[in-house]
Design a protein around this nucleic acid. Structure first.
Lengths: 169, 169
DNA sequence: TATTGTTATACTCTATAACTATA
DNA sequence: TATAGTTATAGAGTATAACAATA
């Protein structure tokens, strides 16, 4: 198979053997481990794509939640991001400095900051969605459209009991 | 649908509406984001299961790679774990102190540490595999066996071009 | 008295640089 | 001269504690 690899004194193919061995390992070849690695990889690639837009992946998630949930507070955002509230402060700070998000005091409870997208924020979000979608297109290229639908559906089924951050307010 | 939820003055179902809105978002409802979150979740659960055995998930990965790859060096292990070599030092230190892994000087290149499992390491690995497998069983419970096979296969296809750490030595 | 948001600080995790020993 | 492993240190990222404003 591999012409440049010299034959050893063993009768089996060490390359093929070891590959099979690793992929068949109860841990390294498990669905859970593959899921973990896939998540890390796709996350890294989205992160990189966002960096080219001057954003982080977290920035994109903030823009997404703020766009989808009217009157979202930082507290609720921290729940949905599964991120410490003190980290949300910095995230919103950065987006507000770039005029992508605005903090508006909730008139019904003046402790809360109601987060809203600015027009510039809407535009950046559109670009970011396009970039993130392109990354995923390429990432899932080995699958047919039908397979991607099946994959997404299965992930939904698996995650359904663990999706509180996607639940309504 | 939800009997305990009182009707509001809007004609639409706000709960269902906002859930659909989030799940339909191009980012928050995307396969990539679900993949990311699924990976994080399953990783956290495996980490917790390992903690009950006095291990980390990384410890399990080290045990797995050492068990599968004869004469594995720390350098190669760091590649396969996608972890800095200086971090591998600490990982192997910890496992060696607990007598689960042994460093043996490679006679052909005395700079290299050949890593091998001790009998105790084999036993602990067996227990850890059992625990990690149980976590995944429960995690994938919403899927049929057939669906799990399909999921694993699709993840393999997607990850195939990005699986150097599962390749032979 | 409790909660939202904020700041300052401490802690954890990781990477960088420099060293030893082998090659 | 280059590489495997190690150590010490600096840096990034995160969480904890304490505070002000509001309920």
């Amino acid at each position: 198979m591999s012409p440049e690899r010299p034959r050893t004194n063993t009768s089996v193919d060490p390359v093929g053997d070891r590959l099979v061995a690793l992929a068949d390992d109860a841990v390294l070849g498990s669905t859970g481990y593959l899921l973990l690695k896939a998540g890390i990889h796709v996350g890294n690639e989205i992160e990189q794509a966002m960096r080219e837009l001057g954003l982080s992946m977290r920035d994109l998630l903030v823009l997404s939640f703020v766009a989808c949930l009217e009157g979202l507070s930082q507290q609720e955002l921290s729940d949905r991001l599964a991120l410490d509230p003190t980290l949300v402060v910095g995230l919103v700070d950065g987006l507000e400095e770039r005029d992508l998000v605005r903090r508006a005091k909730d008139p019904d409870d003046r402790r809360r900051n109601m987060l809203v997208l600015t027009p510039a924020g809407e535009r950046v979000r559109t670009d970011a969605i396009e970039a993130a979608t392109a990354v995923q297109e390429e990432y899932l290229a080995p699958l047919t459209n039908e397979q991607r639908t099946v994959l997404r559906s299965m992930l939904f089924d698996v995650m359904a009991p663990r999706l509180p951050w996607l639940r309504p307010a």
